[in-house]
Design a protein around this nucleic acid. Structure first.
Lengths: 104, 104, 104, 104
DNA sequence: TAAGCATTGTCACCCC
DNA sequence: GGGGTGACAATGCTTA
């Protein structure tokens, strides 16, 4: 790749500096941050793909992925206490004359 | 010339025509469709804004919007039968040794 | 027994108040909010249906709906980019050697 | 409905089996899928944390994280637009008098 | 009918 | 801490 704009040698500036500034921005440093982030996001995206594959494999084994996702989410919720909110929900439902859900 | 991809079928005309064709596309007709859609989407967006406002107003009256949203969604679900899926979910949870949710 | 159902004649209560409380929740007010929201969502859904119809009509006139949707989305993006404050952003982009958004 | 809801196809076994079925669900297999997914999601979450740290570090170096995020997103969009098939799309845009995407 | 896509709602993070 | 904003997941539609 060919030394795109913002490269070190476009230093028409008066003050000396380590990383060339472009319009007052440390280009090299900025570029480094951008690349680190993009690299990490790429890995994250790859993992998302892996997860998708697992769901596909589960589906291939006869499982219903929609339900499977729900199971995962329920397990996630159960790690935390969600009781407080639940009771509030029941209050609202009661106020509307709805039964507080025999089962979701 | 054979009915170029996506071009309106009637556009076999060569020179004179009501709505000028650009590259085989009936520009006027296309523009009309685009405008109708954009107009409708605008209205839809406005309604979304209205809904947001109602939630804000509810919040201003001391209601918990998150719970309120859940109430709405439950009422939506109750219109339909959701029993089949629920029982499947219970099966999965049972297979994992989890209790089928006293209440969600 | 405490007047659950939140029905209109739930005024069997001791303390005088405008909207009857159920479990500390102002049932009447809650119901009003729920209804307003559901009404608006209904209208929104109707509009979504209208939009769908326009796409269908366009398709009937030989247009490729998939491309048509893309056109709409591009126009939406371009409009969004038009109203952006880009001072600092432009600096960063310049530092990375990217053109500061070829304006439409 | 054939092939009862989400049950693995091979589960026509009656009594003896490797992985115990609970209510017609292959518990062991289900559990394995759930664990794989949860493991991957954990890794993904860790990466999200890493990304957050990089932003924090950038901020510590004087960069505006909000703008930085926008830069990342713009680069993402531009890359996406780079790999698009635009034949018909260009026709439609041209018909509307829009420039067919000034390439980056 | 299943897969891909587009939209919509949810959630978490950031700023005020 | 509360509101606003942006990313992510999930659902529904559309098409092949």
């Amino acid at each position: 790749m060919v030394d795109v704009a913002g490269a070190p040698h476009e230093s028409k500036r008066t003050t000396t500096q380590k990383s060339a500034d472009v319009g007052g921005i440390a280009a090299g440093q900025l570029r480094a941050f951008v690349e680190r982030i993009e690299r990490l996001e790429e890995e994250k995206k790859a993992l998302a793909g892996d997860i998708k594959e697992v769901y596909a494999e589960a589906k291939g084994n006869g499982f219903d992925t929609k339900i499977l996702r729900k199971v995962i989410s329920i397990r996630k919720m159960e790690e935390a206490e969600r009781q407080e909110q639940e009771s509030l929900l029941d209050l609202y439902l009661a106020a509307l004359g709805m039964v507080p859900q025999a089962a979701e």
